[in-house]
Design a protein around this nucleic acid. Structure first.
Lengths: 251, 251
DNA sequence: CGCCAGGTTGACACTTTTCAAGCCGCGTGG
DNA sequence: CCACGCGGCTTGAAAAGTGTCAACCTGGCG
């Protein structure tokens, strides 16, 4: 905290482009928090964003129970959100990639509700919540977009509830692959070839399945000519076929 | 829309207490949106809340796809939120009771994402989102509390994901009963005796189970002396026993 | 009075988990 | 540089949990 502040001040004049977040120059600005702001508003926003923070693979950005004071925009990398249960059982509640916002779950109770764990070396922009509150009173577009981000998180989660509540194993996996594909495409990556950052177990946890079930579904899709899988590498061969599995019932 | 506005103006001087929402006098103000505001702020808030709207059992407050313009505070009654899937399958994503806020899912896309259906005759206060935006720029406490409400919805949903992802049938039902009990208690009702407003099928849909499974679990809890069930009436006989089922594994 | 939605219960089928064995690939240390 | 170890992945067989189908019950309402 104190150290971050120090870093921020030091960086203001020196290596601004290097250490300071600089939304105005960020190539994620269209999909990240500043989406839709004017150039002038972007400059205002920049005053609020703290230095970037690097998180190594396997480390956590925050942990459940820690006091909440900032939200985070993912600058690069990949995270999982994990909720741990009283008895030790846990569940992955989401995967997040560049441009997405982490930490929204902390606002309600003033402390984080889940762990945010980096699945690869990552970098985040840290946004003190109190400054976000202030600034979103001044910049209407920021207020509106922040509300949208929260609302979309609610909608996203109800989509996951649908996955977990009504779909069967193969449908869930197909939905998962299509979702990854679509989000990667929105970031300019290939929607048909990608590396999974998470293990089978993490996918299973997210989808409410055991890792063996995930593995079997991958193998079946492979044999059915829908995808090619080799460890964490996935190539979608027949995307329409995948969509049929996802929309199921026509089998 | 125009009609609601008309009603609101008419009611301002006439039957204010009857038709106008009047947060300042509402006995739900401690758990509803205005929680934590000062008396003066409450009066400001009242200028924003439209007339109450009555929803008959079985009718919907809004439906998925309809344009979003207001959020709603439940004044009395009981709702389910339901998402319908392309192919017709649907899922209940939540149950809401007095003092809770409906419609937050609409902010992100400008249209509602689910149906909100009354499970008994209900009354809601309608809060135009544009006015909420304005006012939450002026009243810091309102801004903060609105953010908390959204954040808690995110946390609530990740709790449901946990239910759906890692718990088995009987644990889910126990969790459901304990959750109802706790929310009713927060509203001054008996936590140990209540009437379920929803059918077994709706409970099942919410919990990702078939209605027969719900029914069997109820019967089992009854036989085990944990609860008494008779149709929609439930009495919790052994709440610690229920909690053990919920925390499971010790069976 | 009779109908019908909603609920209960039983028998059986099916999906997914559990348990177990073995493989593969990658990083580490000898 | 190779061997080793280990986490991660795959696959099979059996077990468990939940869903499906069907019959029947119950209570409320027209």
């Amino acid at each position: 905290m104190a150290r971050a502040e120090l870093l921020r001040q030091q960086s203001t004049h020196l290596a601004l482009a290097e250490l300071k977040a600089a939304c105005a120059n960020c190539n994620l600005r269209e999909i990240c928090l500043p989406a839709g702001l004017t150039t002038a508003e972007l400059d205002q926003l920049d005053t609020m964003v703290d230095v970037r923070r690097k998180i190594k693979r396997g480390e956590s950005l925050y942990r459940a129970g820690e006091p909440f004071d900032s939200i985070y925009a993912i600058r690069s990398g990949f995270f999982k959100a994990r909720v741990t249960y009283e008895d030790g059982r846990d569940q992955v509640t989401g995967f997040s990639m560049a441009g997405e916002i982490l930490g929204l779950d902390g606002i309600g109770q003033g402390k984080h509700n889940c762990d945010a764990v980096a699945l690869e070396d990552s970098e985040v922009c840290s946004i003190p919540y109190s400054r976000l509150e202030e600034l979103s009173r001044e910049i209407n577009g920021l207020q509106r977009h922040f509300h949208k981000v929260m609302s979309r998180e609610i909608v996203r989660e109800s989509g996951v509830m649908m996955l977990l509540g009504v779909m069967r194993a193969e449908e869930r996996i197909a939905a998962f692959l299509l979702n990854m594909s679509q989000r990667l495409a929105a970031r300019g990556y290939s929607p048909l070839e990608f590396h999974l950052r998470m293990t089978r177990e993490e996918i299973g946890s997210y989808l409410g399945l055991k890792l063996e079930t995930v593995s079997r579904a991958f193998s079946k899709f492979h044999n059915d000519g829908l995808i090619q899988v080799e460890q964490k590498f996935v190539r979608i061969v027949d995307i329409d076929g995948l969509k049929e599995v996802y929309a199921h019932h026509v089998s």
